[in-house]
Structure formats: C-alpha cells, structure tokens
C-alpha cells in the first residue's frame, strides 16, 4: 500500500492518481447523463385524458340530479354536447359542486365550463359561482332510473377528475393519496371496469341506496379489486352502488 499515491485534499493531485480520477469524472458525468436519459424515456404513457381547452368554454342546459354526486342530463345541447348526454361535474381544484347543485336537484339548470375528456368519459369543470351553474327557465323532464341488476365487476376506483385528465397520469397507487384527497373534496369517484359492462368502461361509483362512496372503500382506491353492487342507468350514465363488504383485492 505504501508506494501508492496519497491524496491530500488541499495539495495538487499526485500524477498517477490523476488519470484514474479523470476517468472517474468522465464515468460520473456520462453515467448521470445516461441515467437521466434512460429513466426519462422509459416513463409510461399517461393515457388519453386531458382538459379540452381547445374546445373552448361549453355552455349547455339540462336537469340536475344528485346521484348523490351531481350529474346533469342535457336537454339543450350545443355542437359538441347533444341532448340526452349525461355527465358529471366538478369545481376547480380538488372540490365538487355539491353545495351549488343541491338546491337545483331535479330542476333545469344552465352549466358552463371546460370539458375533461378521456375516451367515452367526460366531465365538466364548472366556472365559479353562478357563472358555472344557475337555474334555467322551463319544465324539467323527469329522469327515470333504470335498474340493471346486481353485478360483480373487476377494476379500479379512481377519482373522476384526475382520471379524466386533470392529472396525467391520474390513476394508480403512486397517485392514491391525490385521488383520496379529490374524493374527500367531493369529486365524483369513477370505477374503471376491466371490460365494458353494458357498453360502458367507466361507471360512476357510489355507496348503496344513494349514499356517497363509503370511507371503507377509500382503502381500496387505486388498487385492482373485485366487488358486487347494483347498477342503475341514469340518462346515459351507469351508476354502480358498490357493496363494500364484497370488495376483494385481485391477486
């Protein structure tokens, strides 16, 4: 050991050690650059969800229904949103529009905001206050709920807003805390089914008998689960009343 070069921090580096250290420097910088590239380019595709600012602000009229998450069944649409469509609504950030929608339950209302879209799923982020949601003139047609029976489904509970494109990626366990925070803020929860059920991949998921998603289900958010519950068609939306006692994590 004795004849090997001895490095002292505040003295010039001994000659034979210089080449070694120079190669270490090159390997270090090159290695970090390569690691940055490889780790960066191997990220997964976050999927097709996004805010559609390119569509511009959308304003339509329809019947408000608390499922208990607020849904609107369109009666007077526009170029993009047709009468007969049904969609969920949220406010800006991680909050829902429950307090604004509740007084208008079963009534005709005009909603205005930006669309979030992921495949068949879309949702509207309403403008603030009465600009986003206000009562409209006219008689509201009655919305008939059509029970579709009890189903066992496999898939993942997500928060509807992040899933629809507010966050990319907006699902999965790394995103679970964010999803829970959205659900706690009254953003509607969505169940992503492993395969289409009654033609739909995405279902609004609630507790039994018109209650909110039970807190017991929050532990399973973002995990892949199997569970049972009644499906009801409301407008063109499917609502799944999940029975939390039947939730099982898939292998």
């Amino acid at each position: 050991m004795s004849d090997k070069p001895f490095f002292v921090g505040y003295l010039p580096v001994p000659g034979p050690l210089r080449i070694f250290l120079l190669s270490v420097c090159v390997v270090l910088i090159g290695g970090l650059a390569a690691a940055g590239y490889i780790m960066g380019v191997t990220q997964d595709d976050p999927g097709p969800g996004a805010f559609r600012f390119d569509y511009g602000r959308q304003t339509v009229t329809g019947v408000v229904e608390m499922t208990p998450y607020p849904v609107i069944h369109v009666t007077k649409g526009n170029d993009r949103i047709k009468p007969g469509d049904s969609f969920m609504m949220t406010a800006g950030g991680k909050s829902g529009v429950d307090s604004r929608a509740m007084p208008l339950n079963g009534q005709l209302a005009e909603v205005s905001g930006i669309i979030l879209e992921r495949g068949d799923l879309y949702m509207m982020q309403l403008r603030g206050g009465r600009n986003g949601l206000k009562a409209a003139e006219g008689d509201a047609p009655e919305i008939v709920a059509e029970p579709q029976g009890r189903w066992q489904l496999t898939g993942e509970i997500c928060d509807g807003k992040c899933l629809a494109g507010a966050m990319r990626p907006g699902r999965g366990l790394a995103h679970k805390a964010c999803a829970n925070l959205c659900l706690l803020g009254d953003v509607p929860p969505i169940f992503v089914s492993s395969q289409p059920v009654l033609g739909e991949e995405f279902l609004l998921v609630t507790g039994p008998d018109g209650t909110r998603l039970p807190r017991a289900a929050y532990d399973y958010v973002a995990q892949f689960i199997t569970a049972e519950g009644e499906i009801t068609r409301r407008g063109d939306l499917l609502v799944w009343e999940i029975d939390t006692d039947t939730i099982k994590v898939t292998p």
Partner: peptide, 12 residues
C-alpha cells in the same frame, strides 16, 4: 386484470 369479465348476478 384485463381478462376479468363483468358477471351479472341478478337482472334488474
């Protein structure tokens, strides 16, 4: 679980 199919347990 891409292979898991929805199962209808009762009719509505």
């Amino acid at each position: 679980p891409a292979d898991a199919e929805p199962v209808q347990l009762s009719t509505g």
